[in-house]
């Protein structure tokens, strides 16, 4: 049986959108897939050594379930983002959902390959030393080299 392959393009850097790439990548790797995640634009934030700035905002996020209805002018007050992030993290923990750090570690453990988009690293003037070590830097063509051979390719 040939090894199945999956490629994910991770483009978002908020807490809620950080989960799908790491959950799907770790699960696929557990199922025996060879997996690559291509991090581009805001997705690059998910490669930081310190993930504490990965947050969720109730602003412009009307689908986010809130304990009490909250008007937009309240959502924009200082500290609301931190509070929403703290509440979301507590909820995740209570339900036994792994932290992002833990999921990322499991991905690396199972040889999921992380590729960072060199162009967006330069565009945002990110310092590579702020990213974890197990990252390769490449462009779209390099990604297609792998993605073209995959069974599943997802854009998140």
């Amino acid at each position: 049986m040939t090894t199945k392959k999956m490629a994910i393009i991770a483009t978002k850097g908020t807490l809620d959108m950080a989960y799908p790439p790491y959950i799907l990548a770790s699960t696929a790797a557990a199922l025996g897939y060879e997996v690559q995640i291509f991090f581009t634009f805001y997705g690059l934030q998910l490669l930081r050594k310190d993930l504490s700035d990965v947050m969720i905002s109730p602003l412009a996020n009307p689908a986010m379930p809130m304990p009490i209805p909250m008007p937009v002018f309240v959502q924009m007050l200082p500290g609301m983002e931190s509070m929403a992030t703290m509440m979301m993290k507590q909820k995740l923990k209570k339900h036994g959902v792994a932290s992002l750090e833990e999921l990322r570690e499991m991905c690396l453990d199972m040889d999921v390959k992380f590729v960072a988009c060199q162009m967006t690293v330069d565009l945002f003037e990110f310092d590579k030393s702020e990213f974890i070590d197990n990252v390769e830097y490449a462009g779209a063509s390099a990604f297609f080299g792998f993605a073209g051979e995959t069974d599943i390719c997802l854009f998140v």
């Binding site: 959950i23 699960t27 790797a29 557990a30 036994g96 959902v97 792994a98 999921l103 199972m110």
Partner: peptide, 14 residues
């Protein structure tokens, strides 16, 4: 026990 998706599967594999 107490773990949510995908931990039971990923850790079973481990």
């Amino acid at each position: 026990s107490g773990m949510s998706c995908p931990l039971p599967i990923v850790k079973t594999k481990k």
